[in-house]
Design a protein around this nucleic acid. Structure first.
Length: 412
RNA sequence: GGAGGGGUGGGAGAGUGGCUAAAUCCAGCAGACUGUAAAUCUGCCCGCUUCGGCGUACGGUGGUUCGAAUCCACCCCCCUCCA
């Protein structure tokens, strides 16, 4: 499909479009002038993770192509809990937890969007959802939704089929999300809601609500569900989610996450999570054999630069180069510091490994020793004797678990 | 309110008095092979341990028993049907 608008053209060639309510109409609207579009984000955790990145890129491209993005924080909807894709209710968060999460999440957006006069907008649906009065809302909006229709949504069907309870509270989530669109349309002239393909039903509801309430045509657009070629969900690794907040996932770890992309996914990842021109993306993705590693490094550096800034990305790349290609200790690795005296006295081996996050328990450490996975200064460690001053190399001791996880102990 | 079914480790799901820290599968970790890839094979996968063990754990609390995830009582929660 060929689009006239830069926005849809860009999204299309980067593989970011799954489906739209009226792509042709949206294309025309985008080509004719500035369109305001939004994406809603849950506030269930202190940080968004890599799975949300595709949505953030969408907002980013919307701004890049001359339009106005709104990042909608789900302060109100998080109080209810999105049942989409969940076969069980989730625990409810308190208001203060949600507020704290929103504050913590904001930072990541500032890397991708320019907020402020004339720029991107950050909104919080708690501002309007919490003010709705029940009876009024039911009369004005509840009357526009039929249970018959709501029961056909996948999010509801899943629960019914699994005989897993869905509370009335959760059942209302879709009304609230639809109302968000309507509210943003009124407040900001917002005419586009985007989201992951799992949000399709919720988005369509919002589009319909705007038409019924305001007689306005607004649009919905979804992205493909992000999975790797082997079918795994994006943004999860062995050690849990890949967070966007630097204090939860360091720039180095973030870089490593992208560096470890499977061969088959490199092209798609470059297109979706970097801003490299598509010609360059195609060239890199076409590299074969070991050469594709170069493409992965570029992917890692570009993706990390978008979130953590170019200096941090290059530092991560350099740390990785020294660690993996030269087998040296590099200062950018996760580091713990101990006093000289403590090291003189002997630093318990597993304490060092645990504090640098390489192992979760002593038992795990012992297992790793048995398996030959523990190395100190790149020498396999077959015993659990403490670390000592003698093992310092250039002021640090390098700890490794397996071939990918490294850290430093530094004496001060 | 009544009748029946159910609540087991990150998830799914066996087990129905000792052989059970609990089958199996998925997820995860490590080793081998490689290219910090994929696939495959192998080992591991509650915590602590002076490696002898110890402590926790099968919704909760009590009880029976030499011994309980398994039996009993009460309670909590979920599901189905009936009212």
């Amino acid at each position: 499909m060929k689009f006239k608008s830069d926005f849809l053209q860009t999204l299309d060639e980067r593989g970011l479009i799954h489906q739209g309510t009226n792509l042709e109409g949206l294309d025309q609207r985008l080509a004719a002038g500035v369109v305001t579009g939004y994406i809603g984000f849950d506030a269930t955790a202190r940080s968004l993770h890599a799975g949300s990145l595709i949505q953030i890129m969408l907002l980013h491209w919307l701004a890049e192509t001359g339009h106005r993005p709104i990042a909608l924080m789900g302060g109100g909807t998080t109080k209810v809990g999105d049942p989409t894709g969940r076969d069980q209710s989730r625990a409810l968060l308190t208001d203060s937890e949600i507020d704290a999460n929103i504050r913590s999440i904001k930072g990541a957006f500032e890397r991708f969007l320019n907020f402020g006069a004339g720029g991107a907008i950050m909104a919080n649906n708690d501002d309007w959802l919490s003010r709705l009065s029940y009876v009024e809302f039911l009369r004005d909006y509840g009357s526009l939704f039929t249970i018959n229709r709501m029961l056909t949504f996948d999010s509801v069907k899943l629960r019914l089929e699994r005989e897993s309870p869905m509370t009335f509270l959760e059942f209302n989530y879709m009304l609230m999300q639809a109302y968000d669109f309507h509210e943003l349309h009124r407040r900001h002239g917002c005419a586009l809601q985007m989201g992951g393909s799992d949000q399709w039903g919720n988005i369509v509801n919002g589009v319909e609500l705007c038409r019924r309430k305001d007689g306005a045509e607004v649009f919905g657009l979804t992205t493909p569900l992000l999975t790797t070629a082997s079918g795994k969900k994006m943004g999860k690794t062995e050690s849990g989610a890949v967070w966007l907040n630097a204090d939860m996932t360091s720039a180095y770890d973030y870089w490593q996450y992208w560096r470890n992309t499977g061969d088959a996914d490199v092209g798609a990842m470059l297109a979706r999570f970097t801003k490299l021109p598509m010609a360059e993306v195609s060239r890199l993705a076409a590299l074969g054999g070991a050469e594709i590693n170069e493409a992965k490094k570029i992917l890692a550096t570009e993706a990390t630069a978008l979130l953590h800034g170019r200096p941090a990305a290059e530092e991560a790349a350099e740390t990785a180069r020294r660690t993996f290609e030269e087998g040296a200790s590099a200062s950018g690795l996760p580091t713990m510091t101990v006093s000289r005296a403590e090291l003189d006295a002997g630093l318990p081996l597993f304490r060092a490994f645990a504090e640098t996050g390489l192992i979760a328990s002593n038992g795990e450490g012992r297992r790793h020793i048995t398996a030959g996975a523990i190395r100190v200064n790149d020498v396999p460690r077959t015993h659990e004797n403490p670390l000592t001053t003698d093992e310092l190399v250039d002021g640090a001791i390098k700890l490794s678990v397996g071939r990918k996880k490294h850290a430093l102990v530094r004496a001060i």
